[in-house]
Amino acid sequence: MEHKRITLFAGHYGSGKTNIAVNYALHLKESYEKVNIADLDIVNPYFRTKDSEAFLESRGIHLISSEYANSNVDVPALPAEAYAIIDDESIRAVIDVGGDDRGALALGRYAPSILRQNDYEMLLVINKFRPLTPDCASTVAVMHKIETAAGMKFTGIINNSNLGDETSADDIIGSVAYAQAISEASSLPIKMTTVKEDLYESVKDKVPDCFPIRLYVKQSWAKAITE
């Protein structure tokens, strides 16, 4: 897919925006020198892009996040540095927006500048295995709420349907119809369907625009530990 200067990932709470944003930033880094990723999540107290900061910086990707992320300061603060990626046109920017309309509200602050430059892609991340967005109608309802809160319209869809560790190839293949229904209802194109790297080979011929992703958050309490 073509790369706009700013790519925003928004969607229902828990749809997988943060991990996709990290994967996408790494993907961009293959083609561009200056890639920044900004964490605008004002909803989640844990499991933030901040968890991947050292890793991202080691790959030459600068992370912009609230200085309070992952600390004990429980305030929904936005990083001042976020303006830099809006204004500096030499940067390829990935923006990880907080979940639902509540999270997307923070985007409203930056929307006028992004719209004025008109070189962005705003992608709706969807997951049919989330219980409050299991079908087209519920997902499109969330989509409209986010657009209203953000003051921006989506330009495409990322089908990130997954069941975490237990995702099977059939789960992904079966999610395509769900994504297509949302695409038709919203008139937005499906930009990609994400798939865990280990399932990529088994689904790539059956799912259009497959994008292999890796889960970058590794915790000591996770079921399987990869050191």
């Binding site: 709470y13 828990g14 295995f129 989330r130 219980p131 299991p134 997954n162 069941l163 975490g164 237990e166």
Partner: peptide, 8 residues
């Protein structure tokens, strides 16, 4: 199965 956050 569905994918859920513990609190939800």
């Amino acid at each position: 199965k569905v994918l859920m956050k513990g609190n939800e």
